Simulated assay, not measured.
Amino acid sequence: MSEGTNRRTVLAGGLTVGAGLAVGSTLARTATAGTTPAPNTRRSVSLVVNGTRRRLEVDPRTSLLDALRDQVGLTGAKKGCDQGACGACTVLLNGRRVLSCLTLAVMHDGDEVTTVEGLASGDRRHPMQQAFMDLDGFQCGFCTSGQIVSAVGLLAEKPDLRRAEIPELMSGNLCRCAAYCNIRDAIATAAGLGEDG
């Protein structure tokens, strides 16, 4: 013990710390005694997914992307950046292309959602899917479903599309493999555009 420190000072300090801990513990118990556990916050959402009505029970914070992948079991829309920057999660919502990672499932009760799995007609591929296959509009394939769905939405939004507009209007869909020339050619082919269209 240093000079000026005696047994009485050490004991008094220990009692003060112990009393502080006891008071803190009592305050914590009192503060939580009046609270009840959070009620079940899940919400019921009805979506028409690829033509089939689906009723889902989701946490209000669940993105449309997570609801489609985890509850409906459709994994075509990819979780790329999860920040709306890459476009891999693009789906059609009431016919318009949206980034499903940036919208909450509970916001779309009753809406129609089309994923890449819903584009084909039975065993017959959608013309955009076929064009991507014929013109090698993919390399690793991770972004391909988002690219295809976005391209289908683009043609619905802009039926008078010109080839030169494709890069700008598809700029929200990134391809890490840089297959952009083939993607542009596939979209132009599906749209029936010529070389100078």
Rank of each mutant, 00 (worst) to 15 (best):
G122H: 01
C81M: 14
T35M: 12
S63R: 01
L92C: 05
G153I: 07
S121L: 08
L27I: 02
C143Y: 08
L174W: 03
G197P: 05
E117H: 01
D160A: 05
Q83Y: 09
L154W: 02
L11N: 02
R184K: 09
Q147A: 14
G18H: 01
L169Y: 06
A33M: 15
P159F: 11
L65N: 01
T26Y: 13
T103H: 10
V17A: 15
S46K: 15
L99E: 13
V10S: 03
S2P: 02
R96P: 09
V45Y: 10
G87S: 10
G153K: 04
P167Y: 00
T32H: 05
K78H: 14
T103P: 03
L74N: 01
A190D: 09
G194Q: 10
A12L: 10
S44F: 07
L174N: 03
T75A: 12
F138A: 14
T189S: 09
S150H: 09
S171W: 08
P39K: 15
L135D: 09
M133S: 10
D66R: 01
G192M: 15
I183N: 00
T30G: 12
R163C: 10
L193A: 12
G18F: 05
T144V: 11
Q129F: 08
R61C: 04
E168T: 00
V23F: 05
Q130P: 02
E157D: 14
A186K: 06
N94S: 11
D59S: 15
Y180V: 02
I166Y: 04
C175E: 14
T16G: 00
S46V: 06
T36C: 08
A120M: 13
T32M: 05
M133P: 04
A38C: 08
G95W: 07
G87K: 04
L169C: 06
G122P: 02
G110I: 13
G197I: 03
C175Q: 12
G4H: 10
D111F: 05
T35Y: 11
R69I: 09
Q130F: 07
V72L: 12
V116Y: 15
V58K: 09
C177F: 06
V113I: 13
T90Y: 08
D123M: 00
V17C: 13
F142Y: 12
L174R: 04
S100C: 09
M170H: 13
C143M: 15
C86I: 08
V72W: 07
M107N: 13
S100K: 06
E117V: 00
S2W: 04
R55G: 02
C101G: 06
G18A: 14
A105Y: 04
R69E: 11
R184I: 10
T30S: 12
L74A: 04
D134Y: 05
E3H: 07
R69V: 11
G13V: 02
K158H: 15
Q129T: 03
V10D: 05
L68R: 01
G73K: 07
T41A: 06
D136Y: 13
V91P: 00
R53Y: 00
D123Q: 05
Q139D: 12
P39Y: 15
K79L: 14
A88P: 02
G80C: 07
G51W: 12
T30K: 11
Q71C: 00
S63V: 03
L99Y: 14
L15D: 02
A190K: 01
T114N: 14
N50L: 04
R61S: 09
K78L: 13
